[in-house]
Simulated assay, not measured.
Amino acid sequence: MIPDDDPAADWTAGGPYLCAPGVYRIPLPLPQDGLRAVNVYAVPDGDGWTLIDSGWALAESRDLLAAALDRLGAGLGDVRRFLVTHIHRDHYTQAVALRREFGAHVALGRGEEVGLAEIHTSGRDPFAVHRTRLLRAGAGALAARIEQGRTADQGDMSLYEKPDEWIEDGAEIAVGDRHVLTAVETPGHTRGHLVFADDAAGLLFAGDHVLPRITPSIGFEPKPPQSPLADFLTSLQLVRSRKDALLLPAHGPVGMRVHERVDALLEHHGDRLDDTLAAVREGRSTAHAVAEALPWTRHRRRLAEMDTFNAMLAVLETQAHLDVLAERGAVTITLQSGVAHYTS
């Protein structure tokens, strides 16, 4: 018997769990990642299964996915299709690996075409764009640490193959005889991020766009757009304008309502913009200096207490907030030797 999902339980414990009629949540591991796990959702589809997202292409993840499907009376070869919310490795790479092995159909949002093309640029350094952004943020020492660690394992980059299908914004996708999913473009976390709305069943497969316990990183992708936070906030408003639904996130437990969580995220970013502006008015002019003044994570850590990777995300998120403040006319930007300085 497959247990019903329990929002109060350890959401990372191996599944499957019945989280809605005909929808099963399968958490898969993310070793060496603070998120700990990624939720893959399995939906019966004719004589096979459709999975929303796929997990990271690791032996442990593959084995646990196979075990979960076995409890559902299926195998890896019964997965006919992957609907992937975005190109980050914990969502996309296992789909490509299983396509190579079993021939599954892989579908991805059209907006991710730019990022995939960038990944396949000859001789590309995957962190070069982020180091450039760190230099603009006045975080030269942090950029140097990123440079020193750039040989760190990034996984099998060949798994970033093109999908079989590019999903267009607004596409309606039938899954079995009880679910019709509408693909909704929600750029911000990545430029081509999709959520899949099942309006009839009152469900939203939210990927990383709406998470129940954290706010996602903004614009951490191979080729970030001009203002990823502005895109993200607009996408939140778009989701808020749609019918409310049960939140089925990629990380964290189920059980929350979409509108409730979107409202909290919008409030959080509003507060963050206020705190960022206050730091500028105190005389902190660079994104790095502002990030040093702000608390981070639910544990309210300081920037100096964070590991290199998460410190980079924090500085880049601060820069994104400063750029939104500039777009709104609350601050002005002056470039000095390639470093952006913000004044109010």
Rank of each mutant, 00 (worst) to 15 (best):
V184I: 15
W166V: 03
R301H: 15
P31S: 13
A278K: 12
V96S: 04
F127W: 10
A117T: 14
R124D: 14
L211A: 01
V254S: 01
S344K: 05
L194F: 02
A20V: 05
G73H: 09
W296T: 05
L277F: 15
H189W: 12
D90C: 05
P163W: 02
A287P: 00
I173R: 00
G77T: 01
H299T: 14
T151H: 14
L134C: 08
P29W: 08
E317C: 08
G55N: 06
L83Q: 00
E101G: 07
A340P: 10
W56H: 12
P295E: 05
G73Q: 12
L248W: 03
A57K: 04
T334G: 09
L30I: 13
L203H: 13
V84W: 07
R284S: 04
M306S: 12
L28A: 06
A279R: 04
A104H: 08
F309D: 12
A68K: 12
T182G: 11
D45I: 07
R89P: 09
G48P: 00
A143L: 07
A107C: 14
D10A: 06
D70T: 11
P163S: 11
L316T: 02
Y160E: 05
A197S: 04
V339R: 03
D153G: 02
H251D: 06
H288F: 10
R328I: 02
A201T: 12
V262L: 09
L273N: 06
L203Q: 00
P225N: 10
T151W: 14
A141Y: 09
A230D: 05
G329W: 03
G14S: 15
I214S: 06
D70V: 02
A117F: 12
A95D: 10
V38M: 04
V239R: 07
W11R: 09
E112T: 11
E112G: 01
S235H: 06
L322S: 06
L204W: 11
L277A: 15
L316E: 06
L277M: 14
L65V: 04
L134T: 00
D5E: 14
R328P: 04
G192N: 11
C19Q: 11
G207E: 06
M157P: 06
A74I: 03
E118L: 13
G73M: 06
T297L: 00
P216V: 00
R25F: 08
P44T: 10
Y92K: 01
D199T: 05
L247E: 04
E147Q: 15
A311R: 03
P225I: 01
K243Q: 11
Q94S: 11
W11E: 02
P295S: 13
M157V: 15
A304Q: 10
R150D: 13
Q319P: 05
D10P: 08
R136T: 02
V315G: 01
A42W: 02
L98P: 00
E292R: 14
I214G: 07
I2W: 00
V114I: 15
Y41M: 08
T121D: 13
E221V: 05
V84I: 10
V210E: 05
T12D: 04
L211Q: 03
Y24Q: 11
L246C: 08
V106G: 02
G170F: 04
L28F: 08
R25D: 07
E165V: 03
P31R: 09
R240M: 00
P31A: 01
Y24R: 12
A59C: 05
R145A: 15
I214L: 12
G14N: 11
L233S: 07
P29N: 01
H120R: 15
